[in-house]
Structures are given as structure tokens and as C-alpha cells.
Amino acid sequence: MRMKLENTLRDRQLASVGKLLAGYTHELKNHLAIINESSGLMADLLGMTESEDEQTRVRFKKIINTIGERIREANGMANHLNSFAHRMDTSLSSFNVNDLLIEELALIDRVARLKNIRLKVNLQDNIPPITNNPSLFQFIIFMIIQELTNSLAAGSVIEISSHINDQIIRVCLSSTEPLDTIPESPEPDNSDEVLQFVAAKMNIGLNRTPPGSDPYQIILTLPST
């Protein structure tokens, strides 16, 4: 009974984080929309103003273009964050693993870049949707990438790929360089235990190649529906 309550509490807590995050991204997009219209209006007015100072006009145009580019970039990030937040709405839904990977990797990319680790994405087209828990799927991907980025040296590459074969979808996270930084065993904390628990809860497979193997891989196996 207590365990059930704790699970419900955890689910609701997660859902509340999702709702807050979704609302926040909406507000963020409102601000971006206002900046966008204001800089657009500046560009319009600049285009109508006669000025002999062509050099200043060119500088203003360049600045306005930079604002526009940054708005597009920030808007893309806000969209990813919003979709990510909405994944917590339900514990069971139909989704495409590629969509969730793209969305999550866009958010994780900066964390990896700060450690000078590159995320290389190689997703097979036409992967069919699956029915499972989307936020747990993203959580497991996050845990694996965090484990790899914590273990790898600067300059390493993590390749994230998806494939389908015989109705089985495989999501593979692998690193080949530098091999000597791969830990002898999984993280000393209980993260592997947590990963296995989540995989069992989602009814998916989670396998690792032996430590030191080339490439070092963590593979998720998801039956398509």
C-alpha cells in the first residue's frame, strides 16, 4: 500500500514538473514572439528610412539578422523542451523512438559539448511507433549518456543509433574512443541497478558489451507493436 502511494506520488510529482516546464516554455515562446515582431518592425522601418549613412544601415541589418537567427535557435530549443515536458503527461502512449531521441539529444547536446564530447546521431528511417512509457524511455537514454559522458575523456564521440530488424527496434549507444577511458565496470554507484530496474519496468532489453570492448556499447531492445 505504502509502495503504491509512493509510486503515485512520484508519478504526480513528475507530471507536475512536466506541466510547469510546458507552461514555462509557452511563456518563453511568447517573449520570443515579441522580440521577433519588434526586430522585424525595426527591419521594416530601417528599410523605409532614407539614410546616407550606408555603413550604419548595413551594421543594423546585420544585428537584426543575428537577432532573427538567435530567435529561431531559441524557438527550436523551446519547442524541444515543450515536447519533452509533455512526454510526462501520460505513462503510456504511442511514440516513435527517433522523435524522442532527436528531442532529447537536442537538450543534452550542450551538456556533452561542455565536456567536449560529441554526440553523433545515426537513426534509421521508417522505424514504426511503439507503445510504452515515453518519459521513462527518455530517462533511460539520459542515464546512459550521463554514464558515458562521465566516463569518457574530452574529444570522445558517443554514437546514438536506431535500427529495426524482425520487428525488434534496437537503440545503440556506443563509444569507440578513447577506449582506455571506458570504466572497468559500470559506475560505482547504483546507476546500473536503476537502469536495469527501469528497463524491466518498461519490459525492454538492456545489454552492455564487456568492459574494454571495441566498440563499447549499451543496447536497448524494444519490441515494436
Binding site: 511568447n30 514572439a33 515579441i34 515582431e37 519588434s38 522585424g40 518592425l41 521594416d44 522601418l45 523605409m48
Partner: peptide
């Protein structure tokens, strides 16, 4: 969003 509406209105008026 008043600022959004007014800036967009001005751009469309132009």
C-alpha cells in the same frame, strides 16, 4: 500580449 499585437499590427499596416 499587447506588445506582440501592436508590433505585428504595425508591420501589417506597413
Amino acid at each position: 500580449e499587447v506588445e506582440f499585437a501592436s508590433a505585428l499590427a504595425e508591420r501589417l499596416e506597413l
